[in-house]
């Protein structure tokens, strides 16, 4: 922590970055995103178990980009999001100073290549709780799975917190905002909710960095992250590709192999 703070002060003092994007204390035990713009504000930065938010979601915002070069505190999932954003040309290589945080150790990564190399060394694993839930879903009958999600979605009010928390949902004009034609009904009724989550899942298949922020962001506790994670895992199983691994775009759904294996097309 002290090393992080020290480096943050240095970066700010030398003018190498305009701000350091990290975590600060929020309400209660929660942590929130915090921009330290003066060396004096660095003291507010915290780094602990509760710092789960994927700050990469801020990196693509106009307001942040306008600041100039920014340093970003990046646990593994954030690192994956950042490299995927570079692959999707939403961040330019070198625009950010990445303060990679891995089990307490801090490493500063200045380029996409360095980030890619750094990520290659690490295995990506799912949270134990998510694994259990996914296995439980998998074991259900189709009818039960349908009932499970319908029950979950019945609480959805389409606040779009899941969308807004997601670093990969950076589009200024979302399909949900599309009204010519209105593909997905705006209202938060059963069909509108179902279609919203289906579309969100499809959009993130092959792009989800599995940070789980969407699920944490849901104010009514729908495990929406399981949808995108399972779609991402499907892509990995089927095609061997994974989002958040390479700085060069390798999107499973706009590439193909002539011998892609399936057994359901008649």
């Amino acid at each position: 922590m002290e090393a992080l703070k020290q480096r943050a002060i240095e970066l700010l003092e030398k003018g190498e970055v305009k701000a350091v994007l990290g975590y600060a204390k929020g309400t209660g035990q929660a942590r929130r995103a915090f921009f330290a713009r003066q060396p004096g504000q660095v003291d507010k930065l915290v780094l602990d178990e509760a710092c789960t938010q994927n700050l990469a979601a801020y990196a693509t915002k106009h307001e942040v980009k306008k600041l100039g070069r920014v340093a970003i505190v990046a646990p593994p999932a954030t690192q994956r999001a950042l490299i995927q954003l570079m692959a999707e040309r939403q961040l330019r290589d070198g625009d950010l100073a990445i303060l990679a945080v891995d089990e307490g150790a801090i490493k500063e990564l200045g380029s996409a290549a360095a980030l890619e190399e750094h990520l290659a060394l690490k295995a990506q694993g799912l949270d134990a709780k998510d694994k259990t839930l996914l296995a439980k879903l998998d074991a259900m009958s189709r009818e039960d799975r349908w009932a499970y999600w319908q029950n979950e979605f019945s609480r959805c009010m389409k606040c779009y917190a899941c969308r807004n928390s997601c670093p990969m949902c950076y589009c200024e004009h979302c399909t949900m905002d599309c009204n010519r034609p209105q593909w997905v009904p705006v209202a938060s009724h059963s069909i509108g909710n179902l279609e919203y989550h289906m579309v969100r899942t499809m959009h993130l298949a092959g792009r989800c960095v599995e940070c789980g922020d969407c699920g944490r962001a849901c104010p009514v506790g729908i495990p929406v992250h399981l949808l995108t994670i399972s779609a991402e895992e499907t892509v990995h199983e089927l095609f061997g590709q994974r989002a958040g691994a390479k700085a060069k775009l390798d999107y499973a759904l706009s590439t193909f192999k002539t011998d892609d294996k399936e057994s359901f097309i008649r």
């Binding site: 879903l137 189709r142 009818e143 039960d144 799975r145 349908w146 009932a147 499970y148 999600w149 319908q150 179902l194 989550h197 289906m198 899942t201 499809m202 298949a205 092959g206 949808l227 399972s230 779609a231 499907t234 892509v235 089927l238 499973a252 759904l253 892609d260 399936e262 359901f264």
Partner: peptide, 11 residues
């Protein structure tokens, strides 16, 4: 392939 799996997960 991806769509089918997603639909299955949704039930």
């Amino acid at each position: 392939m991806v769509f089918k799996k997603m639909m299955e997960v949704m039930g």
